[in-house]
Design a protein around this nucleic acid. Structure first.
Lengths: 158, 158
DNA sequence: TATTGTTATACTCTATAACTATA
DNA sequence: TATAGTTATAGAGTATAACAATA
């Protein structure tokens, strides 16, 4: 009998099921984050658009869509909503008149700061089952996994 | 200057954003799990129904729905699909003729075993960014969080 | 001919309300 | 009256196809 089992049991109970736990986490996150981002047009996805734009203007809407992992058609109406409330500005790129330059407005930055604070609080609440150091570890592992699966989707070599 | 920051930065980049990482993980999981559960009527949710039933027949459909965190209306057509392929049986409870006794058939158990094996493989692939021991730690933390947020939703005392 | 962005459409998942049959 | 289950419907989120403008 081995006491440590690196490979998970082939027939776990519901509570031990990865998919079930992931589903429970995302559901709870949606609920709590939903309140936090209720003031952002487009909700959680609008928030991610602002977050991505904060790092600098993308080459085009398409480049932004790829960064976020969103469909380009989704981005169109997400940006419609954000532009309507003057949180981003959308101007034709003089160099390539098919593309649009998207930039966050000062107002957009201010909203993002406020909402990010609320999001952080919601996340801490969500992870309150873990000790602070554990929660940081969980976040770090999650980020590593996300980076891997994303790059897999984009450029899985072999 | 502190080298350890238990509280996350208030303005993280996209790659460090919890919601973005969670979204990337669930998207990748859906893709991979989708293949694994493609033979189960109702897909990922049908699989969870079978998993929950494997632990024993529930009091009623409603009790099963609460265990899974599904809406009762969803469970109706999920069970329709599973019953149609003889993976579960649905018989009126003699004691309370409003309620139905749901049990997994031998065929349902066999399918579950096969699919669970595929699901485990898909999960291991998904978590391949982590060392096996780390992956187990991640699973354990995820299960703890899920248990907490679930019980919060059902019976938050104070 | 290929690409950016838009519109229209459909499909899945989820949530709500209204109904039936039992208790 | 309250509960178990069903049906119908509407709303998000997502993906696809077709289109206009530009390269």
């Amino acid at each position: 009998m081995s006491t440590a089992t690196p490979v998970p049991d082939a027939a776990p109970a519901l509570d031990a099921d990865f998919g079930w736990a992931l589903r429970a986490l995302t559901t709870a996150f949606r609920e709590r984050a939903g309140d936090a981002v209720s003031t952002v047009p487009g909700g959680p996805r609008g928030f991610l658009v602002l977050t991505a734009l904060r790092e600098g203007p993308p080459e085009s809407q398409l480049a932004l869509a790829r960064t976020l992992g969103f469909d380009k058609t989704v981005l169109t109406y997400l940006l419609d909503g954000l532009e309507e409330r003057a949180l981003v500005s959308r101007t034709p790129d003089p160099a390539d008149r098919r593309a649009r330059r998207i930039v966050v407005t000062p107002r957009g930055r201010r909203l993002l700061t406020t909402v990010q604070r609320r999001m952080t609080a919601a996340e801490c609440d969500l992870l309150s089952a873990l000790e602070p150091a554990e929660a940081q570890h969980f976040r770090a592992m999650l980020a590593r996994i996300a980076a891997t699966v994303r790059s897999d989707g984009i450029c899985d070599g072999s």
